[in-house]
Write a protein that binds this DNA or RNA. Structure first.
Lengths: 148, 148
DNA sequence: CCTAAATCTCTATGAACTAGAGGTTCGGGA
DNA sequence: TCCCGAACCTCTAGTTCATAGAGATTTAGG
């Protein structure tokens, strides 16, 4: 039996957010004390961890709701789970690819600029041109500043 | 010279969102026709592409504003760019790591379940246990369903 | 038993959009 | 040249996913 505060710290989810998740039905209503305070058990912690991880990774609340509801029906769960997983896989891969590009650019910026040579850094031009592009839109001239 | 509709389609950003970006100062006010309609040039498209990519990758509007503002001051821009880059690098790496884990799990789900064997699939138990965990919280028993 | 910390509900704020109402402008065809 | 439907305009309101206070109540340790 743990309080909402303990659950909050353990799962790394803020107290109001836990109550919010209860409101929208992601978390079940826990038992209450005589004085109306929520008391949670380990199962709640695991569910909340699941929700937090999924949110961190960009799943919408709706997707999480789907996922959580699946386990309630043990008949033919695979098909739905498969669909949900497949729907996210391409997206996840695209995100990884773009983040890797971004990582490389950020590394470049940090290592190059940490030296302290200001004025020779074309970081922003680079970023504006290609760093964040997954779709190849060819060689376009950087005119970021012209737009502002 | 393109209309907001053309810009919207080309950049993949909805029309109201473009106007919203203008409101909050991410996009500059473009020229207008006699009849008060916005007309954009290529520079606007590039800037909007930059914004969209950055948003997709999880940068906040504030971070993007920082990045965009840097190029306006050519004096000692490196220091700021460096700081902004460094602030984001760790976060980007963490995101990549977690997404890779998620990718592996999703692949597993898709390949395993695509066979069609319903009822033998422990996808959800797997997810609930460890799939989405970056912080190792040890071997906890899956009791997701007990919480609902 | 007493009190400080934690909890309760409820309402409001925040970011980042998104949608709709009601009116105006644009551009291609008759 | 005029017309009309699509696209545009502003403005307000709603959405999602939280997060922050106000003011009242409960809990637990000394």
């Amino acid at each position: 039996m743990m309080t909402i505060g303990k659950l909050s710290v353990t799962a790394g989810v803020k107290v109001p957010t836990i109550r919010y998740y209860e409101d929208i039905g992601l978390m079940p209503e826990p038992e209450r004390t005589e004085g109306n305070q929520r008391r949670y058990v380990r199962a709640h912690l695991e569910r909340l961890n699941f929700i937090r991880h999924a949110r961190d990774l960009g799943f919408s609340v709706e997707a999480i709701r789907d996922l959580l509801s699946l386990q309630a029906k043990p008949d033919a769960p695979c098909h739905d789970a498969d669909r949900i997983a497949a729907e996210n896989l391409a997206d996840v891969r695209a995100k990884i690819a773009r983040l890797k590009k971004l990582e490389a650019e950020l590394e470049h910026i940090v290592s190059e600029c940490a030296g302290g040579r200001a004025g020779e850094c074309n970081v922003l031009a680079t970023l504006a041109d290609h760093a964040l592009c997954t779709t190849d839109h060819g060689h376009v001239h950087n005119s970021l500043h012209e737009a502002s």
